[in-house]
Each structure stands twice: as C-alpha cells, then as structure tokens.
C-alpha cells in the first residue's frame, strides 16, 4: 500500500498549533525534502492534530495511511516507549539534546522499538520541558504542592506517580475540559511545556514554575515500508533534510521556551525560575517515583535509565 504513496503527495502531521516552532520545523523539513529530492517527494504538512489525535496519527504512520509526522511517543503501541516520559530523564536542554541525538543512549533505546513497530525515526525535536502551571501558589518547592492543597491534573503515568509521591491529589481531565476545570477549580494545576501553557491556558494560569520534570520529545518519523522502498539517494535526502531542520529548530527551542515564559510574566503570571538547589528537591521526588514507574515500563528499561541518569 505505501507504494502508491510514491506517486502522490505525502502527508506530514504535527500536534502543535500552526506557526509555532514545532510547525515551522515540520514545514522546513517538508520544503527541504522537496528541494533535496528535486521535487520527487512533495510533502504537505498539517499542524494542530488536524490529521487526528496524535495516537491515531502514530498508528496511521505505522499502517502507512499517513506517510510521516512529527509526533509524541505513543506508549499504547509499545509500553517501552513510556520510557521517554520518565521524570527527570534530563534536567537541562543540553542534557536532553545529548541523550536523544543519534548515538545518544535514549535514541539507541527507542530506535529499535520504532523499527519493530514499523516506523523509521529520523530524529527528535524537543517541544519543551514540562513546568507546573497553577491557579494557587507560588509553588517553589515540592512541599508547597501538598501544603497549598493543590489538585493536579496529570496526563500520563509518570507525572501522576511523581505528584502523588509528594502527597498531591491528582485528577484526570480531558485536555478540552482543562481550561474550564482550572477556571472552576475541578483542578488547580497542570503540567505542560511553556508553549502549551501559554497558548491554551494563559488566561487561567496565575503561577508557573519551571520544574522541567518532563523533557518532551517529538519524533520525526516516516512509515518504515515506504522508507525501505525508497532509492538510496532519496533516503539520504530525507535524512539530511531532517537533520538540518531538526538542528535548526532544536537550536531555537530553548530560547523559544524562555520567550513563552517571558510572555507569561509580561501578562502578569508569576513565573518562578528554580535554582539548581531548588530543582534538586523536585528531582528527589522524581527519583522516588521511579520505583513505582518501574512497574509501568519494566525493570529492564528502568535499569538502563537508572544507570544513565545517575552517572
């Protein structure tokens, strides 16, 4: 089936809103591909989950219904992918870039899983690091979360265990209801990268703390069968285009995240930037939560993470 895709335009799906750095990265890749293949491969990009929820898109790339995408890890398809959502896998951008770069230990850990699933990972883009946005606060230390009686909306097993470890009450709310829930008080806090917090939740957020507990990678991927049937020069072109656009976007990502935090501060949100000592306190809870997280991703994977993160 993917063979027929050779003849027509490819589709590339993204998750972030149009005209964000994420979207620009995908668009840049598309235009570079057209350039480097001499127009033999043309890709249309669709931002903002227009091609469906990211899980569907991931599945569709696996099935070859959609040729490519810049998508979050979808652990439904293999629970080992959950490893990418380990709390404090990386605490700084430099660290994150290093472990996810081709040859980095996270890349090595995830690549075979992707190939097994049927997608070719071309590289990672970093959407940002999750911070803590809340209507109560300010929150500086993990103890503040329980002290202020903050109900945290979580979105995956890792952050759920993390906040429960510090004695917080966690709630499960669909993203579409999150804004209203923060407004009415069903939840008092959520953890997302500055981009998401600023774009969707700025009007209900009063405090934001850059806890950086989750390093959120998006993977630029192509359907494997389609990839394998490509001539060598086109494979090279696709990979080169990916390297170039990802390097370009990743170089800008940290500054962009800072920009969003500045925008939040400018509109009156109290933004707390943690000192390394303060973040170390959060890291302790993160590490404690790994014990239970091990049940989610399996001991084997957790051991690899332990070995690499603590060294």
């Amino acid at each position: 089936v993917p063979g027929s895709a050779l003849a027509r335009k490819w589709r590339a799906g993204g998750v972030a809103p149009a005209d964000t750095l994420d979207d620009d990265c995908l668009k840049k890749w598309c235009s570079l591909v057209a350039e480097k293949t001499g127009g033999k491969i043309k890709i249309d990009s669709y931002p903002a989950e227009q091609l469906g929820p990211y899980r569907d898109q991931f599945d569709n790339v696996v099935r070859g219904v959609q040729e490519s995408g810049l998508l979050p890890l979808s652990p439904e398809f293999d629970k080992r992918l959950q490893a990418g959502y380990t709390i404090y896998l990386a605490q700084t951008w430099a660290e994150g870039r290093k472990i996810y770069a081709p040859g980095g230990w996270m890349f090595k850990l995830l690549e075979p899983i992707f190939l097994e699933l049927g997608v070719k990972p071309l590289g990672f883009y970093f959407m940002g690091m999750d911070g803590f946005g809340t209507t109560k606060g300010p929150v500086v230390l993990p103890e503040d979360v329980a002290k202020l009686g903050i109900k945290v909306r979580t979105w995956n097993p890792a952050d759920r265990l993390f906040f429960q470890e510090m004695g917080a009450q966690t709630v499960d709310i669909a993203f579409s209801e999150l804004f209203t829930s923060l407004q009415t008080g069903v939840a008092d806090a959520q953890d997302n990268a500055p981009l998401i917090t600023y774009t969707f939740l700025r009007d209900v957020t009063k405090y934001y703390t850059d806890t950086n507990h989750l390093f959120e990678p998006l993977v630029l991927m192509v359907n494997l069968e389609l990839w394998e049937n490509l001539p060598e020069d086109q494979k090279k072109a696709l990979q080169a285009a990916a390297d170039e656009s990802l390097a370009w976007a990743n170089a800008k990502a940290e500054a962009t995240a800072d920009e969003y935090m500045k925008k939040m501060a400018d509109m009156g949100i109290k933004v707390t930037r943690l000192t390394p000592e303060q973040r170390a306190k959060w890291f302790e809870y993160g590490k404690k939560s790994w014990k239970k997280f091990e049940e989610v991703i399996g001991k084997e994977t957790m051991d690899i993470i332990r070995k690499n993160v603590t060294k």
Binding site: E76, F77, K79, L117
Partner: peptide
C-alpha cells in the same frame, strides 16, 4: 499481533 495493552490497567 502487536500485543497492545492499555496504558493504565495494562
């Protein structure tokens, strides 16, 4: 075939 399991309940 893929041995897919649910995220929470497993």
């Amino acid at each position: 075939r893929r041995n897919m399991s649910s995220i929470v309940l497993g």
